[in-house]
Amino acid sequence: MNGENSKMKTANALKVQDRDIVVPGELLCEGEGFVHGKNIYKKENKLFAGMLGMVRIEKDIVKIIPLSGKYMPKEEDRVIGKVIDVLMSGWRFEINSAYSAVLPLKEAGSDFIPKGADLTKYFDFDDYVVAQITNVTTQNLVDLTTRGPGLKKLRGGRVIQVNPTKVPRIIGKDASMVKLLKDSTGCDIQVGQNGLVWVSGDPEKEVIAINTIKKIEKEAHTQGLTENIDAFLKGGKK
């Protein structure tokens, strides 16, 4: 078979390169050579960008990684939420998204909460919580749980907001970046998939951690980021 020939053909059909920034409506490629992934639409054998973002080409799949945008709740995501309302049988949380989330009573913890109890004893207004999303409906109604390892109420510390699309870089591969941050600042850090980050520790160290997170957010698209951040943290300690 002339595999090389067909490879050439598909390469010629591409109008963009891997890691290019494209704007909505921009032509990505012509012909049948490519499968369209996320945030791309097809019209008459042509693929167009359906969003502002970075093009990624993996074999014959073209997709666009968004560079901005609100957090979209997804099942099993770990998020940081703030209590905005106390309901009849649960709490409503603000999760830095277009939608709020509900934590039902029976998902609130291992303790039994009797009927008619004062729910603010458990979670009061403006309390921050690490929770996991258990269910998202088609209408984007979101359910949470705080039952599970590492899920808890957050006491003290501070919460900052980052771009949700940059969260994977802040966590790093196998949580390497968070580990680096924790080890070098001694702070306790929780990163929510929704772009809220909780930092708690020595006040001066908290500031260093936050500045570093802001730096990661700004340089998220660069390569060799972990090494740069490592150097930055070591330099800052002097």
């Binding site: 909505p24 639409y41 167009f48 969003m51 502002l52 560079l67 945008g69």
Partner: peptide, 11 residues
């Protein structure tokens, strides 16, 4: 709107 990361078919 494009900067806000919304799904759009063009500008």
């Amino acid at each position: 709107l494009a900067d806000a990361g919304l799904s759009m078919k063009g500008l």
